[in-house]
């Protein structure tokens, strides 16, 4: 029993530290004006949240957050930043008062609602008693491999994943159509470089 209590303490401590880092990074992002620093800090934010997802035993989600949030979107935001502006416009002193009140109210509602949530890993929670338990019990006999996330995503929910792949493809297609593709969309120096 004592080791369980100690590990719970450790988990709680790590949770507090990670969430404090997230909070500080969030405040810093809101206060900074340099877009380069903001993009870098949002990458940090994604990486810290990925670590936090690992603590919640959501390894697949953490993996995706680290790859997409810290890796890809940082690079894409940098690319977008280079096309537009490097600094955000300065704001009037009280321009952010109304959004701040909205954020505070939403946060208070969420905290109030979270009191009724089942505990993390509670076997009697709705997530673990319905279709989730069914997947866990049936998937190994039907699939023959251990990762239940893959069998849900690829097989039981294959239609959803097909739709998601189509969404990603559509996003790429839309960006290519909006920003243009082919020789004419490239910068002058790159066009010359490509012909060498």
């Amino acid at each position: 029993m004592e080791t369980v209590a100690v590990s719970d303490m450790g988990l709680a401590l790590a949770n507090i530290i990670l969430l404090t880092i997230l909070f500080v990074v969030g405040i810093a992002i809101a206060r900074l004006r340099s877009l380069f620093a903001i993009v870098m800090l949002s990458g940090v934010y994604s990486l810290v949240s990925a670590t936090w997802f690992v603590m919640l035993d959501a390894v697949d989600v953490a993996f995706t957050e680290a790859a997409v949030g810290a890796g890809l979107s940082t690079a894409l935001l940098l690319g977008g930043m280079l096309l537009t502006s490097r600094t955000a416009k300065a704001e009037k002193p009280f321009a952010r008062l109304a959004p701040f009140i909205v954020v505070l109210a939403t946060g208070a509602i969420l905290i109030y609602a979270s009191v009724d949530l089942p505990a993390l890993g509670d076997p009697d929670s709705p997530v673990n008693t319905g279709v989730g338990r069914e997947y866990l019990e049936r998937h190994y006999g039907e699939m023959g491999f251990p990762n239940v996330v893959t069998s849900i995503l690829a097989s039981y929910r294959g239609f959803d994943t097909l739709g998601e792949t189509a969404v990603v493809f559509t996003a790429g297609l839309a960006v290519a159509l909006l920003l243009g593709f082919g020789e004419r969309s490239l910068a002058e120096s790159i066009r010359k470089g490509g012909r060498k």
């Binding site: 890809l72 690079a75 894409l76 690319g79 977008g80 280079l82 096309l83 792949t165 990603v168 493809f169 996003a171 790429g172 297609l173 960006v175 290519a176 909006l178 920003l179 243009g180 593709f181 969309s185 490239l186 910068a187 002058e188 120096s189 790159i190």
Partner: peptide, 17 residues
């Protein structure tokens, strides 16, 4: 995913010298 992400990246990055 790899094709779409690279397409998006090229669309942005190709415009900057």
């Amino acid at each position: 995913v790899a094709g779409s992400m690279l397409t998006i990246f090229y669309a942005f990055a190709g415009r900057v010298a």
